[in-house]
Design a protein around this nucleic acid. Structure first.
Lengths: 149, 149
DNA sequence: GCGCTCACTTTCATATTGAAAGTTTATACA
DNA sequence: TGTATAAACTTTCAATATGAAAGTGAGCGC
C-alpha cells in the first residue's frame, strides 16, 4: 500500500512567508528529490522516529506512557510530534482504548510495519559495528518484553 | 570490523559546562542506550548522512564538489561536517588525489560499505511507499551514473 | 472538594540547520 | 607582475528544531 500525500504533495515551489506553524511542519509532505532514500529520510531521518517504530513494532508499546518509558527517554513534546507526523504520513493510526476520558493507543499501519526490514538491517549494523544489543523479533511475539523497558 | 570509539567511548556521565565546540560535537561518541538501532541512529539519524554514504557507495562521487552536486543540494558546511563525523566514526577515510594544493578524495571503509543493506532496505521502502526512484547497484558498477547527478 | 493518573501542550533556553559570502592554496593566462 | 579561475572548505548569522520542565484538562476514587 502506497502512502498518499493526504494534504499536500507537490514538490517545493513557492517559498512561504513568516514562520511555519506546528501543523504546517507536520503536514509538509514535499520531497527534496526523486531518490527513494532521500524521500524516506524526509520521514524517518532523525534520532527518534525509528525508535518509536521499533517500540510499536517489537516491544508492544502502544500508549503514550509506554512509548515515553523507553530507555532513550524521548521528551514528551517530541513523542507527541513524532506520533502526529507518523499519523499524517499514514504509518501509524490511533484508536481509543478507553472512553471518558477518551485515550488512544497507537498502532502501525501496513506501511508502518513494512519498515521492519529497515529496522532489522539498522540493528544488524549497530550490533556488528557499535556493539549494540541484539533483539530477535521472533522470540517475543510482538507483545512487549521485559528486557526492553 | 567494529567501529572503535577512537577518542572517547564511555556513556554519558559528567555534563559539560558552556557551549560545545564544533570538534566536541564531531567527536562525541557516547550513546543513549544499548539498543543497536538507537546507537546507529546516533550516527546516521539525520537527513544528510545516508545520502553522503549513498553517493560514496553507488554514485562514484568522491570529491567535495561531486558530493555537493547531488540533487538534494547539501549545504557546504553540512557536507564538511558530515564527512568529518563519518571519518571520526571510521566509516569514511580520505586520501589525497593531488598535491599542491593537496586535495582529498573520500572513500567508505569496510564499516561504511557495510551500510549497503540498510540503504537497500530504505530504498525499497521509499520506492514502494513514497513513489521514489529505484536504483540498481548491480547495473552501474559503483562508478558513477549519468542519471544521478 | 482533593488528590491522582494519563495524555498531552506550552514555554523557553540552547543547539542545529542552511543560505550565502568569505578564505586559502595554487594554477593559468595576459 | 597582476588578474582570473578553481576546488575545498570555513565563517557568519538568521531561521528552525530540540529538549527539560512546568502546565493543562478530563475524569476517577474517596
Amino acid at each position: 500500500m502506497k502512502v498518499s500525500a493526504v494534504l499536500c504533495g507537490s514538490d517545493r515551489s513557492e517559498p512561504h512567508r513568516g514562520p511555519m506553524t506546528e501543523m504546517q511542519k507536520t503536514d509538509d509532505h514535499s520531497f527534496r528529490s526523486h531518490c527513494s532514500i532521500a524521500r524516506t529520510l524526509e520521514l524517518v531521518g532523525d534520532k527518534w522516529t525509528l525508535l518509536v517504530v521499533r517500540d510499536l513494532l517489537w516491544h508492544g508499546k502502544h500508549t503514550f506512557q509506554a512509548l515515553q518509558g523507553s530507555a532513550e527517554r524521548i521528551p514528551t513534546n517530541m513523542l507527541a510530534e513524532r506520533l502526529r507526523r507518523l499519523m499524517s504520513w499514514g504509518l501509524v493510526r490511533r484508536e481509543p482504548y478507553q472512553d471518558r476520558p477518551v485515550r488512544y493507543g497507537y498502532y502501525l499501519t501496513e506501511a508502518g510495519w513494512a519498515l521492519e526490514p529497515v529496522l532489522l538491517q539498522v540493528m544488524q549494523w549497530g550490533h556488528r559495528h557499535l556493539d549494540g544489543d541484539w533483539y530477535d523479533p521472533e522470540k517475543s511475539g510482538r507483545n512487549g518484553d521485559s528486557e526492553w523497558d
